[in-house]
Amino acid sequence: MAAAEFFRTRPDGADLFVRLTPKAAMDRLEGVETSADGRSHLKARVRAVPENGAANAALEKLIAKALGVPQSTVSIVAGGTSRLKALRITGDPAALAGSIQALGRP
């Protein structure tokens, strides 16, 4: 599976697949990894703990800042209690695709 498949464009934006590690030393994105089942995910680390949605909120904020979009346009749509998450970002699909591809580069 190609690294570019860690996201998928939609008519109203894009879906981004992320592997989140909470309780990290710093908030950061670490490029794309492919898991044993062949799926690709953007690796993300946040300082927040996985309690009361704090890590999910920190992830939404980190992705919004990295893409230069309002935080209100980023939401977790799957995997709320899992390390593997799907985020939906609303906006121009072509512009988002370019920005998301840049996130995947180490």
Rank of each mutant, 00 (worst) to 15 (best):
L20V: 00
A54F: 10
V32D: 01
T90S: 14
A64C: 08
G104I: 00
A57Y: 05
G98R: 07
A95F: 09
V18L: 02
E60W: 02
G53W: 02
V46S: 00
P106I: 10
P93N: 09
Q71L: 13
A78H: 12
A25T: 14
A25L: 11
P22R: 00
K43D: 09
K43S: 11
S99M: 03
V69P: 04
V74I: 11
G80P: 06
F6E: 04
Q101P: 04
D12M: 07
P11E: 15
A95M: 11
P11V: 13
V18Q: 02
K85P: 02
G31V: 07
V77L: 01
P93I: 07
L67F: 00
D15W: 03
A97V: 05
A14F: 02
S40P: 08
D37N: 15
S75R: 14
L29M: 07
I76L: 01
T73F: 09
L87G: 03
D37W: 09
S75E: 10
K85C: 04
E5Y: 10
A102S: 12
P106T: 12
A25V: 13
L20I: 00
V74S: 03
A64H: 07
D15P: 07
K43L: 14
G98S: 08
T21C: 08
A57Q: 13
G38S: 12
R105S: 10
T34E: 13
T73D: 15
A4D: 15
P70N: 08
G68L: 09
A97N: 08
G31D: 09
D12L: 07
V49G: 13
A48H: 04
N56G: 12
I76F: 04
G80V: 05
P106N: 14
G53L: 01
A94H: 13
L62G: 05
A14D: 05
V46A: 01
V46G: 04
A78F: 10
V32S: 01
S72M: 12
D92S: 08
G38A: 11
G104M: 02
D12W: 06
A95G: 13
A14Q: 03
A64L: 10
E51K: 15
D27H: 08
I63G: 00
P93E: 10
A64G: 08
A97P: 01
R88P: 06
G98K: 06
